[in-house]
Computed example of a mutant assay.
Amino acid sequence: MSSAPLLPPDYRPSEDEEFMSDIQKEYFRQKLLAWRSELLRESNETVHHMQEESLAQPDITDRASLETDRALELRTRDRERKLINKIDEALRRLETDTYGYCEETGEPIGIKRLEARPIATLSLEAQERHERMERTHRED
């Protein structure tokens, strides 16, 4: 993409336009970058907050509660770290013009699905097939 198109402030992609036109790509690029930025900001706030908190609580119950909260917070941040990696992968797919297309079928994933899950790599049908296969293998 040489120069990104300017997005109207109220722009929303629709099924009526050409799929993954330059304006749609720019819309999803901005959406992914904003999401990534928000996750990084929250992560930095967590680190700062954890540095300020002291585990030297005199009360054993308070200390145990704080340790439990920290463990939960760290698990959440780990999930978000993995999400940031998926966002980065989606941004790379935008650069290579493979964003928005199902990895299995090559068909368009669909605007509604991408709006709901901008990091989606499978069409709804392929995702459902994938989940059915997982359930079948889990039951074996």
Rank of each mutant, 00 (worst) to 15 (best):
R113T: 08
H48V: 14
L83S: 12
S14P: 04
R75L: 10
E18F: 07
L94G: 07
L55G: 04
I111F: 01
P58A: 15
L39M: 05
E107C: 02
R12M: 15
L6Q: 12
A126P: 05
R79A: 11
I84A: 02
P9G: 05
I109R: 00
D22A: 09
E125Y: 02
A34D: 15
L83M: 12
L124E: 10
L72R: 06
C102Q: 01
L7T: 03
L39V: 15
P58E: 15
Y27K: 02
D22N: 08
A116T: 08
A64P: 00
R113N: 10
E42D: 14
P9D: 14
L33H: 08
S43A: 13
E73S: 13
V47S: 14
Y11I: 07
E134H: 04
T68P: 01
A71H: 12
P108D: 06
L124P: 00
I111W: 00
E38Y: 11
L55Y: 03
E26I: 11
R36F: 10
R79L: 13
P118W: 03
Q127T: 00
E125W: 00
Q51H: 12
E131V: 02
I23W: 03
F28W: 02
Y27L: 01
T96D: 15
R117I: 12
S65Q: 09
R29I: 10
M50D: 05
R29M: 08
E17D: 12
E104I: 03
L122T: 00
N85Q: 11
D88A: 13
L74H: 06
N44V: 12
C102G: 07
L7Q: 04
D22S: 10
R92C: 14
S123C: 06
H49P: 06
I23F: 07
M20F: 07
Y101Q: 04
S37V: 08
H130D: 10
L33V: 06
T136A: 01
R70N: 04
D16P: 02
P108K: 00
R113Q: 05
P13S: 06
D10T: 11
W35F: 13
H137R: 05
T96H: 13
Q127F: 03
D59T: 04
P13W: 00
M1R: 03
T68S: 13
Q24P: 02
R81L: 12
H130L: 07
H137G: 03
S43Y: 12
E80G: 01
S123Q: 04
Y101R: 04
W35I: 04
F19Q: 05
R12Y: 09
T98G: 02
M133T: 06
D62T: 01
A126K: 00
S21M: 04
T76E: 11
P8W: 12
G100P: 07
L7C: 01
C102P: 13
